[in-house]
Amino acid sequence: MTYWINTVSADHVQRGVAGGFTQANHGKPHMLRKMERGDWIIFYSPKTAVEQGESLQAFTAIGRVADDEPYQDELSGPWRRRMEFLPCTATPIRPLLDRLEFIVDPQRWGYKFRFGVFRIEEPDFLLIRSAMTQPRAA
């Protein structure tokens, strides 16, 4: 099992959650082909929307790959993977920065997300999942 981060604006994450799918790297299949059924993906959203979006810098969804191969959407053409999403709450990244192993340089923490999709280790996955799924105080 592999753990991934997928960098996607929050509006696109919401569409994926509603439709039970994910895309990566502007609809290209390369990274999606590296994923396997049962892999976990955490979605990081730097902005609320691709165009004219406000800064968000939060983990916005978490899900598991639910198919064996990428498929191409017939209507719009991008490559996708079917997903099963967990109920969760959007969680700002900044309170977690000092504890995430994949953040090598806290002064330049955003650099890693420029790659779109990347692997993370299980301890980072568990830390983020815990922050996203724990009950919030009212």
Rank of each mutant, 00 (worst) to 15 (best):
M1K: 07
T2F: 06
I5A: 13
I5E: 08
N6F: 14
T7I: 09
V8E: 13
D11V: 00
H12L: 07
H12K: 10
H12P: 00
V13S: 12
Q14I: 02
Q14R: 10
R15T: 10
G16E: 07
G16N: 10
N25V: 08
N25H: 13
G27N: 00
M35T: 01
E36C: 07
E36A: 14
G38E: 07
D39E: 09
W40C: 12
I41C: 13
S45T: 05
P46V: 11
K47C: 00
K47Y: 05
T48D: 06
A49I: 01
E51P: 01
E51C: 05
G53Q: 04
G53L: 05
G53S: 05
G53F: 04
E54H: 11
L56Q: 10
F59N: 10
T60E: 04
G63A: 05
G63H: 03
V65E: 03
A66Y: 00
A66F: 00
D68I: 08
D68Q: 12
E69I: 08
E69H: 13
P70S: 06
Y71N: 10
Q72Y: 08
E74N: 14
E74F: 07
L75F: 12
L75S: 12
G77Q: 04
G77E: 04
G77A: 06
R80Y: 02
R81W: 03
E84K: 11
L86V: 11
C88G: 09
A90C: 09
T91G: 01
T91F: 01
I93F: 05
I93A: 15
I93L: 15
R94T: 15
R94Q: 15
L97P: 00
D98F: 04
E101A: 15
E101D: 14
F102S: 03
I103V: 15
D105G: 11
W109N: 08
F113W: 06
R114T: 11
G116Y: 07
G116A: 06
F118I: 13
F118Y: 14
R119T: 12
R119H: 02
I120W: 06
I120C: 09
P123Y: 07
F125Q: 07
F125A: 11
L127F: 06
I128A: 11
S130D: 13
A131W: 01
A131T: 03
M132F: 13
Q134H: 13
